[in-house]
Write a protein that binds this DNA or RNA. Structure first.
Lengths: 331, 331
DNA sequence: CTGTTAGCGCGTTCAT
DNA sequence: ATGAACGCGCTAACAG
């Protein structure tokens, strides 16, 4: 690999002049510049960013620590958003998944710090309240899709309550009156907020709250959705719409509805949550659902980090991003 | 951030001694070592890997370039496999997605090279034959889930033919005689091989090949699967099993089968391909399918890279990994 | 067992 | 407009 010095020799200038050319310093005559560029090309020279960063003490590197990266396809959008924001400013991401292993999380943060990342985003695959991994405070950091209990670290999370509200309101605007909710497993951070939004929508629109129409799942999976939907259909009168707190639940609900010979959306409207594409877009009829803003969260997290680097300080903002409605054919 | 020199001062030793302690050099007396470790801890010292790497000329960094990262959930397993293999050896991954943009791919490779990655894995989300991105040959590289037409670069891909063979054979062992195939869109690299495997299985087991039972899709999506399955069901006699060349096609086929009041697997067996979890595991009944070895490919790619670094040379092996059968309830 | 000197490839400071 | 000397934080090579 050619060095700056070899280029300098080839171009018969000092290596400092080469440095100037690389960094677009105007104080180089056109002819010298041309000669240097020529030498760069013939030698296939490539600046050594490691060396440069060591000197400038800026790595243009951001760490991205994910609690895990396997189960859901959400990671991908989070990363994509983060990367787009970083790439635009000439930053690169160093991504580590720690598979829900605290030791690995700590190790990841330490390694990233040793590699002189200028900031760290810590992302979880499920919306959660977390205790920050050790040492993460040694670099500017942002939590994506999760937040610290004490709000000490900047965070960006989905506005679940408003999502729940709008999902329910969409059903109400559709003219539905007996709207059921099949909620997530009670432990999930999002469960409470989505329920709260559901209740607020009913109240706001003067609809009665019927406890029998509200069900929890054990694990938020399709089998659960099937069973709960089946129970709801036994009610008299049965619901004319159902808000499934995630798309997998909706997937199971579809089967239960179809098994009774009912039609979606003519007999019953279904709305989901998460916009898990492979499910939502492919169900028959395609599922109307609330999208989780993963891409936007990743993007915001990195932008906030970059802003902090510009300003020399990071503000511990707690931002919530909307969950937009994705209209398909199920309501 | 404390430096090695500050630690040395605090411990009243030369900075070289600190260096020895950090690198587990045995030539340090126990008492000195203890004193140094003490200083390290009180100062919160963290070695600067940038500086170390500059000196040792080893970055312990691997580049991971993905053609895109958004549409399918496959990226995640590829990355996970790569990361696990890297982490085990103290390497980190620098991941870039270039969104099918050639310019971005070239830029990504250049940036990675400037950052002194010791090797690059280039991965595609769909099994493909590609022309290598420019400059990638400047570092040891491996293609994952794709290969160069001329075999000049090491590659690891799924054994699609054998997967197609085993999928079909599984159906045959189940006692099925009239096995249909709904294949991918004809342009897909995997389409030919999966078809070849299907044909070989029929031939091997002395079953006739009936052209009418072989259908292509336009885009490999559920709607397509629905239509093709519907056509197949019009045949006399209808197939008693169907090999869907991906799980999304199978998803559509399920709907077509159920719409006719037929039962899976009693009336007709369905086997898929890809093991796209959110679909395969959640369909009712759960879909038996062939898994794509994404994790394994990512793992192999990095291991091969690491082997090459150990050996000082990379061999352009063209490895194919098996697609294991995932038994569920649909056959 | 410990310390000294040199230098990795660059950018910064100052001189010319 | 160009160059020389210096140092970023660390390890290698050698000395003691």
């Amino acid at each position: 690999m050619a060095t700056i010095k070899q280029v300098a020799d080839a171009a018969h200038v000092s290596f400092k002049t080469v440095s100037r050319v690389i960094n677009d310093d105007p104080n180089v005559s056109a002819t010298t510049r041309a000669r240097v560029i020529d030498a760069i090309n013939t030698l296939g020279y490539r600046p050594n960013l490691i060396a440069r960063n060591m000197r400038t003490r800026r790595s243009h590197l951001l760490g991205f620590v994910a609690d895990e990266i396997a189960t859901t396809p959400f990671a991908v959008n989070l990363i994509k958003g983060a990367q787009d924001a970083a790439w635009k400013r000439g930053f690169m991401l160093m991504i580590v998944s720690c598979d829900n292993d605290a030791a690995r999380a700590e190790g990841a943060v330490e390694t990233l710090l040793e590699r002189k990342v200028e900031g760290v985003v810590y992302a979880t695959m499920r919306h959660e309240v977390i205790v920050p991994p050790p040492h993460i405070d040694e670099a500017p950091s942002v939590f994506a899709n999760c937040r610290a209990e004490d709000g000490s670290v900047a965070s960006v999370t989905p506005n679940e309550e408003r999502g729940g509200f709008e999902a329910t309101e969409t059903l109400i605007h559709r003219g539905r009156q007996r709207i059921a909710l099949i909620n997530l497993e009670p432990g999930a951070t999002a469960a409470q907020a989505r329920l709260a939004g559901y209740l607020r929508a009913l109240t706001t629109h003067g609809l009665p709250i019927d406890e029998r129409r509200i069900r929890n799942t054990d694990d938020g999976q399709p089998d659960d959705g099937f069973r709960r939907m089946d129970e709801l259909l036994d009610l008299t009168p049965p619901p004319d719409a159902v808000f499934c707190a995630n798309d997998r639940i909706a997937m199971g609900a579809y089967d239960a509805i179809k098994a009774r010979g009912l039609r979606i959306p003519q007999d019953i409207s279904v709305i989901g949550f998460d916009n898990q594409e492979v499910i939502a877009a492919y169900l028959r009829p395609a599922l109307t659902t609330m999208a989780l803003p993963h891409y936007e969260m990743g993007y915001w997290a990195v932008e906030h980090l970059l802003r902090a680097l510009d300003n020399g300080a990071i503000s511990p903002e707690q931002v919530m991003l909307p969950c937009p409605l994705v209209r398909r054919a199920s309501i």
